[in-house]
Design a protein around this nucleic acid. Sequence first.
DNA 1: TGACGGATGAGAATAATTCTCATCTAATAG
DNA 2: CTATTAGATGAGAATTATTCTCATCCGTCA
Lengths: 144, 144
Amino acid sequence: MQWFRDRCAEAGLPCTHQRQVLYRALLEAKDHPGPEMLYERVKRDIPSVSLGTVYRNIKTFLDNGLIGEVSLHHGPLRLEANNTPHHHLVCRVCRKMFDLPAEQVESIHLREALPKGFHLERFVVEAHGLCAGCAAPKRTGRTH
Amino acid sequence: MQWFRDRCAEAGLPCTHQRQVLYRALLEAKDHPGPEMLYERVKRDIPSVSLGTVYRNIKTFLDNGLIGEVSLHHGPLRLEANNTPHHHLVCRVCRKMFDLPAEQVESIHLREALPKGFHLERFVVEAHGLCAGCAAPKRTGRTH
DNA sequence: TGACGGATGAGAATAATTCTCATCTAATAG
DNA sequence: CTATTAGATGAGAATTATTCTCATCCGTCA
């Protein structure tokens, strides 16, 4: 929590009660919760909190790197007909995706066993980075 | 396309004009489009098509394994405060997620260079499969 | 061709997220 | 410690994404 307050100060973000409770809720969560879930948890401490505040602060935290999103793929469904084994290159900024044939990636090895009870089916690999357009200097905005 | 018609027959799905045009649109797409995008493309051939039909058939295709979704993470945002390098175990059925420390996975190697212009930042690995609850026999439903 | 079960189009309903604005509060200066 | 003020908050409307309902239509099989 002290780390959180320091980062808020650095970023020039007022360290409000709502923000602290929200951040703590996420710190203590082990289940990768979504906004609705966090809203429920924050409400236990601040019954008057609004869902809008939760969304607003989640976005603020993400923009400042205080928290992370589990995947770049939330939001609208994205589809493909390609049924050959393959992975993806994903642009962190514009979220364009390109196929990466499975043979191009050496197979994944674990150093320790997975937690007991989980039945592994396959490994999915994503190469995250910047696509040609977004990596080009001088241009900041996302393409979509 | 013949493959598509055969699979429809196997699955007992009427092979309607809308379905064929939708499937072809996705076959030809290289950009991992979403429903809205596919709707636009199908409309070029069938101006009267409805968005509901596009959504309905996308779901039908997914349920029958005719097409794939790019990631298990579309839908509501999922968050985490854990800022140590780590990957995730993801249950294909209930979509619960568990952390997998980065050290537990041997580093990724490519057999060929990535397409020129893509600036790689990191590899994200996801272990997809069934969690203990969903792998248990006799129970089919997802937990959420 | 005829019958019928499932598919379609239109639009309402629901879920997920963002926005607007009047009011309030954390941070800073006095 | 109080005043100031930029930015945060709560309420609820607006927007976007997706699913559902139902009357009508069409692909499949006999």
